[in-house]
Amino acid sequence: MAQVSASPAAPAALSSHRLRRVRSRVPVWHLLWLLVAAIFFLLPIYSVVQFSLEGTLPGQGVFHWYETVFDDPMFRSTFWLSIQISLETVAVSLLLMVPTVFWIHLRLPRLRPVMDLITILPFVVPPIVLIVGLAPMLRKFSWLIVRPEVLALIYVVFALPFLYRALDAGLRAIDLRTLVEAAESLGSSIPGTLLRVILPNLRAAIIGGSLLTVAISMGEFTVASLLGFFTFPVYTYEIATSTAYEGVALSFISFIFVWAAMLALYLLGSGGRGAAGVAITD
């Protein structure tokens, strides 16, 4: 955009270029704020690492608490349960959202304001509020409430705003109508077009939205603990209240997990846009 505005008048471009060189000395307070932020972010992480290596008895290894945690069969089973729930959440979310958002863009653009409103609702009704209304309803379905899959069905609602936003942006970026008409004129059906033409074009949006969905579902504690399921965050909490060192080691493991997911998301957005996917409204 800067290039466009600079190109018509060469002198203007020249002066802005000179300005940039003059101003490229960074003011001290900018560096100060960057330093304050770095210390604030890194101090807890340093402390977690330091703390999780402390408190061992003589003869025990440096990574004693990590070894203890990895040897705990509950660690493996809860981690696996959370992974399973996350993947189920991603599967249900994609099955529900991709055709819907595609269809709204193609045939029902008038519904877009409605969708914007619906995607704000999960913030108006946060997990702790939703569960107050949902728990008595679910009680009537006693076969469902005892199964951990019920968590995936609920997490779909929490992931909705992020997945919708990712898919919406992805569909805005392609010329949907032309693609669909081209496919139709070549004899493709609507489901065939969605599967073979639109999905490959939405790959980045789908992977990005899915990564955020996994991050949300893996870390969700409120609903899981209140409905009495023993997921990974609930296990982390239980362990930490009995042995602080093990709990902190588990916290570091979750931290690495979230970081990996967000790093993948950032690399996917290849510089800037992707990282804006955060658990919040605009």
């Binding site: 960057l34 932020a37 972010f41 101090l43 807890p44 992480i45 402390s47 977690v48 330091q50 703390f51 999780s52 955020l212 991050a215 949300i216 870390g219 969700e220 504690f221 965050p233 982390t236 909490y237 930490a240 602080a244 709990g247 902190v248 588990l250 916290s251 570091f252 979750s254 931290f255 979230v258 970081w259 967000m262 790093l263 998301l265 950032y266 510089g271 800037g272 992707g274 990282a275 804006a276 996917g277 955060v278 658990a279 919040i280």
Partner: peptide, 26 residues
């Protein structure tokens, strides 16, 4: 810029149980 942005993306999503225990350790 990429360092601060990607770290921010991580930290903004790092709420909940592990965050609380990270600060207990700090």
């Amino acid at each position: 810029r990429p360092a601060y942005l990607s770290f921010s993306g991580m930290a903004a999503n790092f709420a909940g149980i592990p965050l609380a225990f990270a600060f207990t350790a700090t």
